[in-house]
């Protein structure tokens, strides 16, 4: 465990990954890319769990990551269904087309 990467570095990587995902989510309009950005953010969070688990030598972090993975899989399933439906209805993948909920 001595030659391990310092936790700060890992966390910074997480932060960068998360920010990239967030920026992707906010900037992209294509719904596929938005979904992918969400995946990036999820994985960033998962990575943080793992790092934290490694720091304290606990398995919980890895357990959580598996949990996140399972959830991500479910999310992708639902998300892709939505994407199909979305495309079916709007004939586009641009999310801005779906603003019928405007107040």
């Amino acid at each position: 465990m001595t030659a391990s990467v310092p936790m700060e570095h890992g966390l910074i990587l997480c932060a960068i990954l998360f920010s990239l995902g967030l920026i992707g989510l906010l900037v992209r309009r294509n719904i596929i890319f938005m979904l992918m950005s969400i995946e990036v953010m999820l994985n960033a969070a998962g990575l943080a769990f793992v790092i934290a688990g490694a720091r304290w030598g606990q398995p919980d972090g890895q357990v959580m990551f598996i949990f996140v993975l399972a959830m991500a899989a479910a999310e992708v399933a639902v998300g892709l269904t939505l994407v199909l439906q979305f495309y079916h209805r709007f004939k586009t993948l641009n999310t801005d087309a779906a603003d019928t909920m405007r107040g």
Binding site: L25, L26, R29, M34, T95, D96, A98, D99, T100, M101, R102, G103
Partner: peptide, 13 residues
């Protein structure tokens, strides 16, 4: 307040 509800997913994000 309802003007803040733009209907755009990105704004909500």
């Amino acid at each position: 307040l309802s003007r803040t509800q733009t209907g755009l997913v990105r704004h909500y994000a």
